[in-house]
Design a protein around this nucleic acid. Sequence first.
DNA 1: TATTTCCTGACTATTTTACTTGGTTATTAT
DNA 2: ATAATAACCAAGTAAAATAGTCAGGAAATA
Lengths: 158, 158
Amino acid sequence: MRLSTKGRYAVTAMLDLAIHHGEGAVTLADISEAQGISLSYLEQLFARLRKNGLVEGIRGPGGGYQLSRPPTEISVAHVIDAIGEGVDVTLCGGKTDCQEGERCLTHELWQQLGGRIHEFLEGITLDSFLKRKNVNAVVRRQQNDLAVETPRLRKTVA
Amino acid sequence: MRLSTKGRYAVTAMLDLAIHHGEGAVTLADISEAQGISLSYLEQLFARLRKNGLVEGIRGPGGGYQLSRPPTEISVAHVIDAIGEGVDVTLCGGKTDCQEGERCLTHELWQQLGGRIHEFLEGITLDSFLKRKNVNAVVRRQQNDLAVETPRLRKTVA
DNA sequence: TATTTCCTGACTATTTTACTTGGTTATTAT
DNA sequence: ATAATAACCAAGTAAAATAGTCAGGAAATA
């Protein structure tokens, strides 16, 4: 179990898609601009999200990405798992091979904790995340601000 | 909020102290040997744990570290906070300074999630962690195995 | 005094993160 | 057709975090 800024990037980007779910595709360029994340870095993250079936990419003009499932069916855990965090749970499994087999039982402890955190994150869907407070409105306002600053309007927003 | 192997090291080491709470001090050398963590690395971690008042160090022969509070009053969150994980919650606060002040509101979202995970970890004490299943017995058995392998017995164990 | 053990600081290697560069392919609009 | 758009792909780089090393203290005990 691992949780760092990388996961945050992925989750915030997915929230962007969740907000526009049903309104067509959102381009990575837009997300990049709106959230200050490098475009190519986003591409790398979305490659994984796509391979894990969380999003689908649409090529060509008017294309972009959209959720392949409704936001009620995508959890934060899904996102974090997809980008490759939360694989190596034991300290021994990787490089320092568990010497005796019995030695590594404190790690099993940790695995329990990791499991519980995972369950916790499974319970938080993109949808439920957005529904807290007036967050949705706030994010939309951000994007309006952006649209005013830059000549470039997001196509999917009327 | 960040959760990685570093925190795991600290938590497992603290569990070791929790097991021997009330039985005297445990040396870092013992923890290092038992769990395969570099001694100097442990020293760095414990420097932070000590500065945050979670443990106290006792110098000289027969010395070592012990919890400064009972295991029922130390949470996993305490440990993780102490070693410096979970400080930089916002993406903007650090280097990429938040451009407009309004722009960074998706991060506030994430802060909510980080907060909830933190609350969750606050609810897990070292004590409750050990009481799950027969874990305590297992860890003790590990240490017996160790004692048999190496001529060096842990002093604090009768 | 000698040993043990904490304590400190600085330095190194590895890994991960975040980003860059330079392309290709599919799709749409002109 | 052709040009523009935007997903896709691969490789390499810079900065940071992680994990560990080294070399020496300073306090307590025997």
